[in-house]
Design a protein around this nucleic acid. Structure first.
Lengths: 319, 319
DNA sequence: CTGAAAGCGCTAACAC
DNA sequence: GTGTTAGCGCTTTCAG
């Protein structure tokens, strides 16, 4: 019996002949190991959870697909854990989840990646976790991308088109990406020798509606911008709606660009210039690092992925 | 030990006093039953899967949220099973899934809802399943909506705005909804005393790109339509892109409407007139019926949910 | 109404 | 390299 177990788990100390014989029998009998028996006898649950906020964003759906991919490839199960981040009892909720479901590990998405209380609890319980775009990267497992340089490059693109009054709609303040993208925006201004004008930087929270509102605010300015760089695609789509509502045109009157290259960037008119993040791949890689960490502690690392400007129709020469 | 088990599973034959004592102890010891032990000893896995095709559609994401909701409420786990529907080995794949994961049941989404071979297999293995918008509704468990009447009402809306040349972009032929929506379109023509013009009905496959292509085809007609009713929101968004690309305006030159009321209908300009389907709720209800069916065979039913026209900015008076 | 006994199907630890 | 033994933490069955 144990020999069969060894073959099924690719463990060493089985002769090639025996291994083959077992495999043949498995095939013939259509044998499938029972996951629960395995979990009960062994120490692991073969279950990881993905913790996330805001379940209906385009971005998270892509991430989920990637995480799922990696889990399936390694025969792990994925449990979806939508969390309302406002709730102050997030730590308690996650704790209950871990206790009840015996999770082997968790994948964290922003802004949960940087909840100190939660991370401390995870560490204390010795639950491995991998983060996607965490704010703090010291000694972390997961995946990151140089968002600041991406924003800076996007700025260079706008400047090259002749834009001088470039506005920025910020992301949700709890997300690390918001800060980096703003920093890149400022880098871009500096590169072009432009002054930082605080009236051109308005708050947003990654939602379509917040993009609409922010854009109306910008267009009400005595000297409205000729280009808007939104911290994500949903807000950029909102910006385009607001511009059209005023009878203006994109990109003739105002150029707009977003971030993330989510499906919506190709589904609106005009198609959106944006920064391509390999979102799905990021989910996959984060999950892969998590699984490594689960198998063997201290072997997971922080993977750096690269972005690419995706030039489409929503940006054009300054009027 | 068995008494504790009874209390935890809300089984009868425990005195109120004992029950209370057990509950107090559970609380005090922070005891949590081990899911795998329960699965191993009992006969159920407390696991259901959602089978779906085309994982990146707005529609499915909403459905998933609803299904997840119902499962969590009843302490069932949800396994996501993205399937490539082209593949001819779909039955084998699902079979493997059931065998390996010991699923208690599955939720089916279109067009998998009507794969005869798969359904036969599920029946043979006695695996309960619930369908969301199945084509065939006889003796089925799940949730349906009167799509035909919805399309018909939408037609009435367009006719009331003065439109006479109304085109239809069909959905993916494998989906039942495509047929019903087309039927409702024809009902609407008849109601208005309009002739059916086959050149005004073009093929689509529910994707944005297919909506763009279909619309170009319609606008190339000697007598182009003044209104387009697409079989879903993604294609309607594509139609709007195509119309704008030609320098025309929506709804001034052409009115456009979609189906499903997915998030994108509110994220594009102009906002989309569409048929609201309680998509998330449909996922929830289907899962609920499935769980009923799992607990006690022949108790699940077919729930009928209602739609509502969502009038927004993409439809207006005929030119 | 309560509980003892016997597994569910695996893996860990340890012989051989 | 292979096999034995003893559980993992529950539920089922059946006796009280």
């Amino acid at each position: 019996m144990k020999t069969v177990s060894r073959v099924l788990n690719s463990e060493p100390n089985v002769s090639e002949a025996t291994r083959r014989a077992v495999q043949a029998a498995v095939e013939k009998l259509q044998y499938r190991p029972h996951p629960s028996a395995r979990t009960l006898a062994g120490r692991r649950s073969y279950l990881v959870a993905m913790l996330y906020d805001n379940p209906s964003s385009n971005y998270l759906m892509e991430v989920e697909l990637g995480v799922l991919d990696a889990c399936q490839a390694q025969h792990y199960n994925l449990m979806l854990a939508p969390l309302v981040y406002d709730a102050k009892d997030i730590v308690a909720k996650v704790e209950a989840l871990i206790l009840q479901s015996r999770l082997d590990g968790v994948v964290l998405t922003p802004p949960i990646t940087d909840d100190e209380a939660l991370l401390a609890r995870l560490d204390a319980r010795d639950i491995p976790y991998a983060s996607i775009s965490p704010k703090e990267t010291h000694r972390r497992v997961g995946v990151v991308l140089d968002e600041r340089s991406a924003a800076r490059e996007m700025m260079a693109h706008l400047v090259s088109l002749g834009h001088r009054r470039i506005a920025h709609i910020k992301g949700h303040p709890a997300h690390g990406a918001s800060g980096w993208r703003l920093a890149g925006y400022r880098d871009g201004l500096q590169d072009a020798g432009l002054d930082y004008d605080p009236t051109l930087v308005v708050a947003g929270e990654f939602s379509h509606g917040s993009g609409v509102a922010a854009t109306h605010q910008l267009l009400d300015l005595a000297q409205p911008p000729t280009a808007i760089i939104a911290a994500n695609d949903d807000m950029a789509a909102g910006a385009i709606c607001a511009i059209f509502e005023r009878g203006l045109s994109v990109p003739k009157d105002v150029s707009v660009c977003g971030f993330d290259d989510t499906p919506i960037s190709r589904q609106i008119y005009p198609s959106l210039t944006t920064v391509r993040q390999p979102t799905r791949e990021m989910g996959r890689l984060a999950a892969l690092e998590l699984l490594k960490e689960i198998r063997e502690r201290r072997t997971g690392g922080l993977v750096d992925v690269s972005y690419a400007l995706q030039l489409r129709r929503s940006t054009g020469p300054a009027p």
